[in-house]
Simulated assay, not measured.
Amino acid sequence: MKLNQTTDYALRILIFLASKPEELHSIETLSRIYRLPHSSLMKIVSELVRQGFVTSVRGRYGGIKLGQAASEITVGQVVRDMEESFKVANCGECVIQPQCALQEVFVEAVNAFLSVLDRSTIADLIRDKTGLVPLLTLSKEVDNL
């Protein structure tokens, strides 16, 4: 199963915010660090705010930060909330669909996949902050782009 780009970016955003929870961060900073389009990040952050994973502060000194503790956000919940569908195959128009048990196998596989993701939180993904934080910091070279 492959996650959509929105889910991928949402997880990256949450990892970044969890790695520096004491600060407000701009979408522009995220865009530069991850080298992702600002407009795409705006849409994803809006959805993360709507879901309660992220809090947005408006104004000149505003920005975004985690809306909950990183230890309370499971990877599985983020994936469920960001993915549009978990259909592995399009069984609806298949001639054998009424008698085929493959769809049940796919449902079981997706449930197992999500169960594994439910065992990890965003906090689990940032255990080694000493190695992660430098990778998520704008260098002077990137900052001058």
Rank of each mutant, 00 (worst) to 15 (best):
L66Y: 11
L66Q: 04
L66V: 09
L66W: 06
L66H: 09
Q68Y: 12
A69L: 10
A69F: 04
A69H: 12
A70D: 05
A70P: 08
S71A: 14
S71W: 02
E72H: 07
E72S: 13
E72T: 06
I73Q: 06
I73R: 10
I73E: 04
T74M: 04
T74R: 07
T74I: 02
T74Y: 03
V75W: 01
V75D: 07
V75M: 11
V75H: 03
G76M: 06
G76W: 01
Q77T: 10
Q77I: 04
Q77D: 14
V78E: 03
V79Q: 05
V79K: 03
R80F: 02
R80C: 02
R80P: 03
M82G: 05
M82L: 11
M82N: 02
M82R: 01
E83V: 06
E83W: 05
E83L: 04
E84A: 07
S85W: 01
S85E: 05
S85G: 00
F86I: 05
F86V: 07
K87S: 11
K87H: 09
K87R: 11
K87W: 02
K87Y: 07
V88K: 09
V88I: 10
A89Q: 10
N90F: 03
N90P: 03
N90G: 03
N90V: 03
C91D: 03
C91R: 03
G92E: 10
G92W: 09
E93M: 09
E93Y: 08
E93C: 07
C94Q: 01
C94K: 00
C94T: 00
C94Y: 00
C94G: 06
C94S: 00
V95W: 05
V95C: 00
I96M: 14
I96F: 12
I96P: 04
I96S: 12
Q97L: 00
Q97Y: 12
Q97P: 00
Q97I: 00
P98L: 07
Q99W: 11
Q99D: 10
C100G: 01
A101D: 11
A101I: 07
A101V: 08
A101H: 12
L102G: 15
L102S: 14
L102W: 06
L102T: 13
Q103S: 13
Q103E: 15
Q103N: 14
E104M: 10
E104N: 15
E104Y: 12
V105W: 04
F106K: 09
F106A: 15
F106L: 13
V107T: 13
E108H: 14
E108F: 09
A109N: 06
A109L: 14
V110A: 06
V110I: 15
N111V: 08
N111C: 05
A112K: 14
F113L: 13
F113H: 11
F113R: 08
F113Q: 13
F113V: 09
F113T: 12
L114W: 11
S115M: 09
S115H: 13
V116I: 15
L117Y: 12
L117Q: 13
D118P: 13
D118A: 10
D118G: 11
R119K: 15
R119D: 10
R119P: 04
T121Q: 11
T121P: 12
T121W: 14
I122F: 06
A123W: 02
A123H: 10
A123K: 12
